[in-house]
Every structure is written in structure tokens, then in C-alpha cells.
Amino acid sequence: MPDTPRPYRIAPRYLANADADDSEALQPLLDADWARSQDQEGNTFVTAPDLRARLAHLPGSDGRVLWKAGAGPDAFAPPEWLVTFDNQTPPEVVADFTTALADTYTHGPDAYLNRNDRTVGVDTCLQLLAEGWSLDPATPFLTYRSPDRLVRLHVRDTPLRHEAETAGDTERWLFEVGPPGQVWYATASSRLPEHLLQALTTAVTDPSPVQRNMRRIDLDHLPHQATATPSVPTSLEAARIRAATSRSTSSPSSRQPAPAALPAPIGASTAVTPRRSPP
């Protein structure tokens, strides 16, 4: 029997692969009447009506960064803050952040720009500690680890050049997610407003399951800490089961093969100690 894709629910979602519909991350901004454009390389740019805030989806560019979001005081000014997601980030994570950005935009520039020109994050870090995260003294940064040890938040507590941050050469906040060898990254610069940093943190760490159409061979490449549970049968599988049941009912004496059993859930939640340091 061919190894055809079928739907599975993958939990936690931050261990799901990035193979899903990227348009989900663009839609909250498009629904808020942001303008969409595209270049010849297939990159998509979504811009707020006042031209101050923007999102870029960059599948046609070199490098690992797939998503960039930022905002500035006017259409021609460099961004005041920058948030990035790499090409292995589950798009549901990006969608949660763009949903928060679209909502924040409706409250005006004071909501989506850091008018005080200050480093934020104290409230966010205190909240993580209250939720059972721990500080790791073995890194050169302030590193917060989630209870399952699969999400690390590295905070650079040294002075950073604003121009270097907005160019993507360095970052104040670095999320490192996944076990060694299967890590994805999200970053944020110093002047990201606190409530957007909190929204980013919530998006990255949300354990809710997500659906992926996967083959058995794909399941083998999931982190072993992830759990994959079969979703409802496909319409074709359901039709085959109904046909087999009908034949069995109408001809009790005939021996019909039983429908194939659904694959059992795989994976179990275990803790690992990451071995890599942030770039």
C-alpha cells in the first residue's frame, strides 16, 4: 500500500514542521486592509495603510530568514523594531503574531511604536519565571528555559547598536525552539513594544496541536518529543471502510479483509538538554 499523506495532529505545535499554508500568516493583515504586493522572485510584502508598518514573506531570498515584520515613524524611515522568523517556523506561530500586530495597529502609532526609546522585556521575563521557566547560568546571555527544555529565550543584556538590530545583524531577543538538530529561530529587537513582545512569546510557546498532512516516513523525522495523533479518516478511507462494512453485512459468509487500522500515535514527551548556543 503506498505511503500516502494523511492528516495528523502534532503536539506541541512548536515541534511541528513548517510544511503548511503560509497564507494563514498573511491573512490577519489582509483582513485589516493592508496592501499586498509581490516581486519577481515570489516574495510578498504587506503594508499598513499609513505605510509605517509592514510584513515581508521572503521565500525567494537567500538565507534562512523567511519572515520579517517591522514598523517605523514614517514610510521612508528605517524601522524602529524588527521581528524575524526563520524558514522552519510553523506558520501558525507567525499567524498569531500578525494577528496581534493587526489588532495593535488599529490603536495607532503609539501602540505599535516604542515611543519611550527604551529596552523592554522585564514583565515578559517575570511572567516566564512565574510559569515555571528557569534561568540557565551556563550561557553568556540571560537564557530562560521552558519547563520541557525545548524552548530557550536568550536575552542579550549588553548595549547593542540600533542600526545593527534593524539590519538583522544582531538581536536583543532570540527564541531557540526544538531539540538539537531540529531547531528554529525567532528574533526581536530592543524597541519592540512590550505587549508585542508578550504576544510573540505567547505565539512561540503555545503548545496547542496543529494539523499536518504527513506520510509515515515524514513522521519518522518529527522530534521524538512530539506526539502525532491521526485525525479523522480521509474521505477516501471513509468510503473504503463503508464499502467493506456493507459487503460484510450483506454477505456474512464471505470473508472480506478488514479495513486498515489507523496508525497509532507516536512519540512521547521527554526532556532534552540542548547542545547548541545561539548564533
Rank of each mutant, 00 (worst) to 15 (best):
P2T: 07
R6K: 04
R6G: 11
P12Y: 07
Y14E: 13
A18G: 13
A18T: 11
A25E: 03
A25T: 02
Q27I: 00
L30V: 11
L30K: 14
R36A: 05
S37A: 13
D39L: 09
Q40W: 12
Q40R: 14
T44G: 04
T47Y: 14
A48C: 08
A48E: 11
P49D: 05
R52M: 14
R54T: 05
A56I: 04
D62R: 15
G63I: 00
R64V: 12
V65T: 15
L66Y: 04
G70F: 12
D74V: 03
E80D: 10
V83K: 08
T84F: 02
Q88P: 00
T89K: 04
P90T: 02
V94S: 11
F97N: 01
T106K: 15
H107M: 10
G108V: 06
P109M: 10
L113F: 09
N116C: 06
T119G: 14
V122S: 15
D123L: 10
Q127K: 14
S134I: 07
L135C: 12
P137F: 06
A138R: 14
L142N: 10
Y144K: 03
R145H: 09
S146Y: 07
R149I: 00
L150A: 13
H154K: 11
H154M: 08
E165F: 02
G181P: 11
V183L: 12
Y185I: 10
A188Q: 06
R191F: 15
R191I: 02
P209F: 07
N213F: 12
L219C: 05
P223D: 00
P223G: 03
P233T: 09
E237Q: 15
R240F: 08
S248Y: 11
S251Y: 11
S253I: 03
S253R: 14
A260P: 03
A260I: 07
P265N: 00
I266N: 02
G267K: 01
S269R: 15
A271F: 04
A271L: 14
A271N: 03
V272N: 11
P274A: 02
P274M: 00
P274C: 03
